[in-house]
């Protein structure tokens, strides 16, 4: 029962979200009290569903690219051939995390102009850091006995990486991706200030026209997405960690 209830809650939240995205007008009575008499209570300058999908697509594309690059780099610096890069990468990650996402976004605009691109770049760059850090931690803190055993059984470097090291580091890497996705989901909304198609449009429209209902629905959709995705990742990590004997 203790496990059942939160899952039921999640399922219900997901159901409400899906209904809201497909038939937002059903929720109009709930949001109506938040707006002045004749203002619309449901976002009407575009489809909430398509904004949500493009929001998710932007985050997904940026996170995928960030994952590939960050895990690739982490693999490189944890091999003997890349060991010289390890100390600097660590301090770069540390410095990089002090870059506010908004600043990264703003700085990307001069380089690539308006639209989706600066958002993608900002999300990509900012997403790199947690994934890289976690992948590096995961790959460099494997139990020495297991790494030794993998060499001892005659695995080649590539086999050790793909059959032992990456599978064992996977839960930690996933935790990094989860962090990165959660930050990106929220940061993507700011992308709408530079004309990216995200749920930020809804929020900004609300701020501009003093429409609290818009702000609320934009913010809540993003928050619910973030919570659900966060939970899904956590569940996946738990399963993997249990299988990897770390649970």
């Amino acid at each position: 029962m203790r496990r059942f209830l939160p899952n039921l809650l999640r399922l219900a939240t997901l159901a409400v979200l899906v209904v809201f995205l497909f038939r937002p007008e059903l929720f109009e009575p709930l949001l109506k009290p938040l707006v002045q008499a004749n203002a619309p209570a449901i976002y009407n300058q575009g489809s909430l569903l398509s904004l949500t999908l493009s929001h998710l697509a932007t985050v997904f594309a940026a996170t995928l690219a960030a994952t590939i690059v960050a895990v690739g780099l982490a693999i490189l610096v944890t091999r003997p051939i890349g060991a010289e890069f390890l100390p600097l990468s660590r301090s770069l990650v540390n410095i990089g995390q002090t870059f506010p996402p908004v600043a990264v976004l703003a700085l990307a605009v001069p380089a690539v102009g308006f639209g989706e691109k600066p958002t993608l770049i900002a999300l990509f760059l900012y997403g790199l850091l947690p994934i890289f850090e976690n992948a590096m931690t995961g790959l460099s803190t494997l139990p020495p006995a297991i790494v030794e055993a993998a060499r001892g059984t005659g695995m080649t470097g590539w086999q050790r990486l793909t059959k032992v090291e990456l599978p064992l580091a996977l839960p930690v890497v996933l935790a990094g991706i989860r962090l990165s996705v959660t930050i990106s989901l929220a940061t993507a909304t700011i992308g709408s200030t530079v004309a990216a198609k995200t749920l930020g449009e809804v929020i900004i429209a609300g701020l501009q026209s003093n429409n609290l209902a818009f702000v609320l629905q934009g913010g809540l959709v993003v928050a619910v997405l973030a919570v659900l995705i966060y939970d899904a990742f956590s569940a996946l990590e738990r399963v993997l960690a249990r299988r990897a004997g770390r649970g």
Binding site: L34, T182, L185, A186, T187, T189, I190, L199, G200, I203, I204, G206, L207, L212, V215, L216, G218, G219, L220, V222, A223, A226, V227, Y230
Partner: peptide, 13 residues
């Protein structure tokens, strides 16, 4: 998880 611009906006009222 609430996006910053939304939280800022929600606190206005």
């Amino acid at each position: 998880t609430i996006p910053s611009i939304a939280l800022f906006g929600l606190l206005i009222a």
